[in-house]
Write a protein that binds this DNA or RNA. Sequence first.
DNA 1: TGTTACATGTAAATCGTTACATGATTGA
DNA 2: TCAATCATGTAACGATTTACATGTAACA
Lengths: 189, 189
Amino acid sequence: MALRHAVLAALLDEELSGYQLTKAFDLGVANFWHAQPQQLYAELTRLEQDGLVTGREVVQDNRPNKRLFRVTDAGLAELEHFTALAAKPSFIRDDLLVKVQAADHVDTETLIARLTERSAFAQAKIDLFGRLLHTMRGDRTEEEFLRHGERIGPYLTCLRGLAFEHGNRDWCERAAAVLRERQGAHVRN
Amino acid sequence: MALRHAVLAALLDEELSGYQLTKAFDLGVANFWHAQPQQLYAELTRLEQDGLVTGREVVQDNRPNKRLFRVTDAGLAELEHFTALAAKPSFIRDDLLVKVQAADHVDTETLIARLTERSAFAQAKIDLFGRLLHTMRGDRTEEEFLRHGERIGPYLTCLRGLAFEHGNRDWCERAAAVLRERQGAHVRN
DNA sequence: TGTTACATGTAAATCGTTACATGATTGA
DNA sequence: TCAATCATGTAACGATTTACATGTAACA
């Protein structure tokens, strides 16, 4: 049950509503956890029942009212406890890799199309993460920020997300290139 | 429902029993999908019911009898169809990243311990994947193998797994180094 | 004699995705 | 007026994990 800890970790920096959390989980938080809005609303309810977060109603004029949540001391203690446990290894589960595993048995054109799509997706995330990192460190260099910054957790996780997407993009390009070359060679023979 | 396609892809090269599949999903196949033995046995049963694989009983003297499965033509067509669909983006869901996200709020020593554990785990997989790749390409160079090898799908997915674990190891080392340096600076102040 | 590997499952619980549902406001 | 954004859910289904269950044979 790590979704609850992901939510707690995401709420450490600021009070957020369920809706804002879903936005966060679409952007930066997606570097370390991914979840649907429905999961987040449900988890917030449970976390509040368990006293790990507290919500306060914020009345708004123009927009629907919302509830902002922040982590309680009990929530912080729960995170501390969670950190002390051995982390489970993180496994890859990727549709695209399944398709590439079958590369020699399925249509090459189709596979190259999938790789190209994924590569573009990865590039978009690379750009996004680059901007996020820049926002976090301001005009400091990365070294300087990591040495003396006040809040480096989100920066470090974003670095992992960036490296992951670099890995995705580079691998997609390489695999597509290999398939294209083999296709060419086959046609010429 | 991509587990079924992962199983089909894993069975492309050789007839395997459920037990052998669980071993494969512990090793190479874990580069593109991860699953528990219970899932695999259940999925094999469903796949056979749906006619996508066929099993044959192999009577053994010393060991319990086993059933070896291979992909049928219908199974191959299903894989082809699956490949034509847009691949879902693959998201990270990682305990360890949740812990690092909370870095500035939890105990640093503990976090460094988790990062060190993960780094060692990643290194072990790097070694394993290096050996697997070498086995697949034999005495050919990688370039040569990828150009003319007869079965490159598993090689390409293993390359992705290798890059992923390199990313894991390098990031863990970096994050641990950053935390250690900040800890040292704090103690001296 | 005890542990590991071989071999295959069932059942319960938890987690995650997809579909459905509602309603206001802002901006094009 | 139509789409997008804000705001929050319920219900059904599918996927995954964990616990329980069984038995033989090889090896140290």
